[in-house]
């Protein structure tokens, strides 16, 4: 297991390097530059600004400098938020976004798996139909619909949770955003779990477990559920990507001071360093969750450790 883990971890670094390199050049190839829309800017000042940020250097040299900075944990200065470094901006927003995203993934697993299991065990019963109908809705409705709806019902109307906003340390501000973000993932995981558990329950090794005279509960929890969770674990990677994009919307709807807005604003403003910083952070996050998924996979199914 340890060598399997090490191999997986070693695989992450080249992937991250490729992501950084590709993004760096793609962003530069895109038309426009950080100081283009400031039309009043005289050409000499613009040239001075570009020189100050090293934008006049050949692209390859810029790339080299950027990498050198990154290795030391320096994301460079923001071109638009002129008083801040990218590191500072990310440090401001990321904790909120991380808390939002990770809570959503965790909630999705904690609710989705039991719901899917329950639906599978009560296959074709009202419970099953109920769970699966809600799941279809959950997958179909986008966050910009459910978000305002929840804010309206649970915020304005019932007054259970704040409608929007953020106060550090106040978890109740996170409840509606997390639920909004997690809902489609819960629904998807519930469906995955149900389908895959039903399949595993028909396999030969489950029949062997039943032939042993074990209680059905043990058959399911000990023999069936673990292999049934393999597709769910594989879905963790895409789920992270989904949660990251979803959080951009949800942070806006609920006015959370997360880092999602920097990605959008950075891209609009051609704030090269800010966009790159966000890509590096979100890229590493996605890779880390994929890594965790891989390790979980190896734990769930001993056969994959020996490939």
């Amino acid at each position: 297991m340890l060598s399997y883990a090490l191999r997986r971890i070693a695989g992450v670094i080249p992937t991250l390097f490729i992501i950084i390199t590709l993004s760096f050049f793609v962003i530069r190839i895109a038309p426009g530059g950080p100081f283009d829309d400031e039309q009043t800017l005289p050409p000499e000042i613009k040239a001075n600004l570009e020189a100050a940020y090293g934008l006049d250097k050949p692209l390859l040299e810029q790339y080299g400098r950027y990498l050198a900075g990154l290795v030391q944990g320096d994301f460079g200065p923001s071109f638009k938020f002129k008083d801040f470094s990218v590191t500072e901006l990310i440090a401001q927003g990321l904790p909120v976004s991380l808390m939002l995203g990770l809570s959503a993934v965790l909630l999705a697993l904690l609710v989705g798996i039991p719901l899917g299991t329950l639906a599978a065990l009560r296959q074709n019963s009202p419970t099953d139909y109920g769970i699966m109908s809600v799941a279809v809705l959950g997958i179909a409705l986008p966050g910009f619909v459910t978000g305002p709806l929840f804010a309206l019902v649970f915020g304005l109307h019932l007054r259970w949770f704040p409608v929007a906003g953020w106060e550090a340390g106040e978890l109740r501000y996170l409840v509606l955003p997390v639920v909004t973000l997690a809902l489609p993932v819960i629904a998807y995981i519930a469906r995955l779990t149900r389908g895959s558990l039903l399949e595993v329950l028909r396999t030969n090794h489950v029949r062997t477990a039943r032939a042993k005279g074990l209680p059905e509960r043990r058959v399911i929890l000990k023999h069936a559920l673990r292999p049934a969770l393999l597709p769910v674990v594989s879905y963790l990677g895409p789920a992270t990507a989904f949660v990251i994009t979803g959080s951009l919307v949800v942070e806006t709807v609920f006015g959370l001071p997360g880092s999602g807005r920097y990605l959008v604003q950075g891209a609009i403003n051609r704030d090269y360093t800010l966009v790159m910083g966000m890509i590096v952070v979100y890229g590493s996050l996605t890779l880390t969750l994929n890594l965790i998924a891989d390790l979980l996979y190896g734990w769930l199914d001993p056969r994959v450790r020996y490939d």
């Binding site: 090794h205 673990r226 292999p227 769930l300 001993p302």
Partner: peptide, 20 residues
Amino acid sequence: RGVKLSMIFQDPMTSLTPHM
């Protein structure tokens, strides 16, 4: 089942639980 009455199955390759 499993105490007084036992069964050995047709396919040994798939009849054991892979993760135990």
